[in-house]
């Protein structure tokens, strides 16, 4: 690595005006180097050109009306969303719940008996579930969100500023999920 290359990352901080991010001793060294190095001065200028180029494509302001429209859609899917039950309850619910509890308890009991009979060793042919899938990935938390949140409803807005209608369509078709 040439001496210039060791200074280059600091040039980004200079171009951004993040001088505080450069340690004082490096700053003195960098100033001295820039005074004597036309190549690094040109590199610094190019960093500034890139900043200017992106500034030409500044985001246009979003009209407040459009933000309000978005808020209504966000609200309808978050805090404004009526409490929903994932599994609809039906008239025989008290008996159904009791029956379901008994069934679950029976399955657990059978599972324990089978496990005791088979012994504690690994089950042949069953691969352990990998726990490291996202561990080393920098976007692990975001991927987990993506994975857990695959049921984004479709939102349709209609109307005008006096009467805004927001339709939130939930996909309840379990057969489409893989």
């Amino acid at each position: 690595m040439t001496r210039c290359e060791t200074y280059m990352p600091w040039l980004a901080a200079m171009a951004d005006g993040e001088i505080d991010a450069i340690p004082a001793e490096v700053r003195q060294e960098l100033d001295a180097h820039l005074a004597s190095c036309p190549a690094c001065r040109a590199e610094l200028a190019r960093q500034g050109e890139a900043i200017d180029l992106l500034a030409r494509d500044a985001a246009p302001p979003v009209p407040e009306k459009r933000w309000q429209q978005m808020w209504q859609a966000v609200d309808a899917q978050t805090t404004g969303r009526p409490a929903t039950r994932r599994f609809p309850l039906v008239g025989w619910q008290p008996y159904g719940a009791i029956a379901a509890s008994v069934a679950v308890a029976a399955m657990v009991l059978i599972g324990v008996l089978v496990w005791q009979a088979a012994g504690p060793g690994p089950t042949p042919g069953v691969e352990p579930i990998p726990t490291y899938a996202f561990a080393s990935h920098e976007d692990a938390d975001i991927q987990a969100i993506e994975a857990a949140d695959d049921e984004m409803p479709m939102v349709i807005t209609s109307g005008n500023e006096d009467l805004m209608i927001v339709w939130v369509v939930h996909d309840t078709d379990e057969t489409r999920k893989t």
């Binding site: 978005m70 859609a73 966000v74 899917q77 978050t78 805090t79 969100i145 993506e146 857990a148 949140d149 984004m152 939102v155």
Partner: peptide, 10 residues
């Protein structure tokens, strides 16, 4: 819009 909805849910 999607980002805010996902953020809220998580």
């Amino acid at each position: 819009q999607d980002g805010f909805v996902r953020a809220y849910r998580n």
